[in-house]
Design a protein around this nucleic acid. Structure first.
Lengths: 340, 340
DNA sequence: TCATACTGCTCAAACGATTGTTCTTTAATT
DNA sequence: AATTAAAGAACAATCGTTTGAGCAGTATGA
C-alpha cells in the first residue's frame, strides 16, 4: 500500500496550493472566494482519492479532538448498553466520536479511565458516576473539559446532570401498589448514597406515609442481581412476608425473580413485584413485569445536547434536568383490595 | 486554567533541550546516555506540572494511536453489547482504547464508520460485518490496518475471523429436538448470506437428513424481533403447525415469543422453542428457553489476542478460529416421543 | 489616469511531539 | 601530547492540517 492520500497529494495533483485545498475541503471555499471550478476540481480529486483528513493533524492544529468520552458502570447491563448506544449515535450526528470507558462499578476504575481518557484531549465527557465521590469529576471540569452526569448525579456541585425524576417514579410505583391494595411493601434498593437511590427511597417513603402507612421495609445495597436475590431470600424467610416487592432496578428484579422461582412463590398470586427500568425482555418474562420505565433515550439526547452547548456555544452554566418516568402496568402486580 | 504543560515548558524550566526531555519521558534516557541527574530532574518537573503528553502530536508523528475500533451492528442488542464490553476490557489491558461504531445493520453505515474511524489512525479493528460485502474490509486490511471479523465472517478471504462453530451448534440443537421426538421442525433464520446463518442452516439440514427427515422448513431473513414475529405468525397460520421452532438468534426468539403469546400458543405444551444465543434474561422468560449458548467471552478474548499479534508481533497470517457452542437445556422443549 | 476594491489564490508559521544526525566536552588510550 | 572513544545533550526536519497575512491581476469609480 502506498501512503494514505493527504491534502498535499491533492494539492499536487490539482495544482492548487495546500491552503486552497484545505479551505475547499473544509467548506470554506465560498468564504475565501475560491472559484466554483476550483472547488469542484478539488472535491472531485479528493473523492477519487478517497481522501480522509487526518484527524490527529487537524486536532493538533485546532486543539479540538471531536471526541467525547462516555464512562458507564458496565456495558453488560442492558440499561447502560442502551445509554451507550444512544449517546454514541447522537454524538455521531455532530461528527464526533465516542470513547467508551467501563468502570465496572468501581470508583478506582472510574478514576483510572478518567485520567486515561483525558490524555486524549477530549472535548467533553458524559459519566454515569459509580461512587459517592465527585471531586475527580469536578476537577476535570475545572480543567476546562465539559462534563455531564447522567442517571446518577450529585446535588450542590457545579456538575450538570440529566436523569429521571426518580422521586416521582418511585412515588407513582408505590402509589400504584397501594391503590392495588398493598400495604405491606418491601423495597430492595441499590447503592445507598447514589442520588437515584436516595430519591427513590424518598419517593417510596413519602408515598407510604401519605397513604398513612408507617411500616415498610427498605433493604439492600446494590443495583445487582445478587443483591436482589439475597434480599428476596431474606424477605421470604421473614415471619410475615410482604405482599409486594419494589425492586429498584432491572438487575435487582432479576435477582428477585430467581429467588421467588426457587422458593416457588408465584407472581403475582403470592407476591407482587414492580421494578424500575424497562427493556424488551420484560415483556416475555413470566409474568411480564409491571415497571417504571425511564426515558433513557430522552435522557441521553438531552445530555448530549447540553454537552454540546457547553462545547460549542461556550455556555458553561451547569444545567440540571430531571425527566418524568412512566408507569407501565403489566401483569406482576395483583389487586388485593378485596382479598382479606 | 492556563495552557496544558507541554514538553517545551519542561525543557525551558529544566534548561535542557526538547529532545532530551522527550527521550527521558519516553524512557529512552538510558539508551541515549542521559545522566541520571538530568533524568530525575526532568521527571520531577514533569510530575510537578502533571504533564500528560499530547496524544495527537505523538500520534501524528509516529503514526500509531494506541487505539482500535470495534464496529457492531447494534449496541442495543445484548449479544453485541456483551461483545463490546468484553472487547473493551481486553483491549484496555494492552493500554489501548476502543472506539465503538454502530452500523445499525446497514452496510452503508458500516462503510461510513469505517472511513470515519480510519481517519483516526487506528492500529487495529474488530468488526462484526453486517452485510455480504467484504471488499471494503479487505481494502482496509490491505492498507495496512489489521482487521478481524468476529461472529459474522467470510470464507476464502484474507480476513482473520473468530466465531462460533455455528454448524455444530445448529446440528446439536436440531439433534436434541429430534431426540425429544420432534420431526416437524421449522427454523427461522437470520440474514441469509451471513456465514453464521449459512452454517446454521447447514447444520440444521444435515441433522434432519441424518435422522432421515426430509421435510423441514427454513424461513425468515433477518436477525430481528420483527422477523421472528412475522415468521412465527405465518407458521402458526399454516395448515399443519410445526411441533418445534428453532430460532436463529435471541432477537428472533423474542419475536417468536411475542407471536406465540398473542396466539395463546403455550410453550412447550403446544409448541417447542429452541434458540441460538443465551443471556441472563433467558432464565426468567416464560418458560426458560433452551438455547445454544455461544462462547462470547472466549470469542472476544481470542479475537483481541489475534488482533494484537497482528499489531505488535507483525504476524500477518490470517487466522481462522471457530469455537464450540453449548446446548443449555431449560424448559422450552417438550419431549413428544410418546405423545401420539 | 490613478486610487480603490474585489477576485482568486498562495506563503509560511504554527500545533506538540519524535528522532536521525551532529556537536561539544570529557575521559581513556597510545 | 595527540588521537580516539564515549558521554551528554542539542539541531532541525518531520508528521498533516489550519489560518492570518499577503500578493498578483482585473474591474470599478471619480
Amino acid at each position: 500500500m502506498q501512503h494514505k492520500p493527504n491534502i498535499v497529494d491533492i494539492a499536487e495533483i490539482t495544482g492548487f496550493s495546500i491552503t486552497t485545498v484545505s479551505r475547499v475541503l473544509n467548506g470554506k471555499g465560498e468564504k475565501y472566494r475560491i472559484s466554483k471550478a476550483t472547488r469542484e476540481k478539488i472535491k472531485s480529486v479528493a473523492d477519487e482519492l478517497k481522501y480522509v483528513p487526518n484527524e490527529f493533524a487537524r486536532n493538533l492544529r485546532i486543539g479540538k479532538s471531536k471526541t467525547i468520552a462516555l464512562i458507564v458502570p458496565s456495558l453488560k447491563n442492558p440499561f447502560f448498553a442502551e445509554i451507550a448506544s444512544v449517546v454514541n449515535n447522537e454524538v455521531r450526528k455532530y461528527g464526533y466520536i465516542t470513547l467508551i470507558g467501563d468502570s465496572d462499578d468501581q470508583v478506582e476504575n472510574e478514576k483510572n479511565e478518567l485520567s486515561h481518557l483525558t490524555s486524549r484531549s477530549l472535548d467533553g465527557m458524559i459519566v454515569v458516576p459509580c461512587g459517592e465521590e465527585w471531586d475527580h469529576l469536578v476537577k476535570v471540569q475545572e480543567n476546562g473539559l465539559p462534563l455531564i452526569c447522567i442517571d446518577r448525579y450529585f446535588e450542590d456541585t457545579s456538575l450538570s446532570y440529566v436523569s429521571s425524576d426518580n422521586y416521582d417514579g418511585a412515588y407513582s410505583a408505590t402509589k400504584y401498589l397501594i391503590e392495588q391494595g398493598h400495604t405491606d411493601i418491601a423495597c430492595i434498593q441499590g447503592v445507598r448514597y447514589s442520588m437515584p437511590n436516595i430519591q427513590r427511597v424518598k419517593g417510596f417513603a413519602d408515598a407510604m406515609k401519605n397513604a398513612g402507612i408507617d411500616a415498610y421495609t427498605v433493604t439492600g445495597d446494590a443495583f445487582t442481581e445478587q443483591n436482589g436475590y439475597l434480599e428476596t431470600k431474606l424477605l421470604l424467610s421473614r415471619g410475615k412476608r410482604p405482599s409486594a416487592i419494589f425492586a429498584f432496578s432491572n438487575m435487582i428484579a432479576m435477582g428477585c425473580l430467581k429467588a421467588l422461582k426457587e422458593e416457588n412463590v408465584r407472581i403475582p398470586e403470592a407476591i407482587s413485584l414492580i421494578t424500575f427500568d424497562d427493556n424488551p425482555y420484560m415483556n416475555y418474562i413470566d409474568p411480564p413485569l409491571t415497571c417504571i420505565s425511564q426515558p433513557v433515550e430522552d435522557i441521553c439526547k438531552i445530555a448530549v445536547k447540553i454537552l454540546f452547548s457547553h462545547i460549542l456555544d461556550d455556555d458553561k452554566k451547569p444545567k440540571h434536568v430531571l425527566l418524568k418516568c412512566m408507569l407501565k402496568v403489566k401483569e406482576s402486580v395483583k389487586n388485593v383490595s378485596y382479598s382479606f
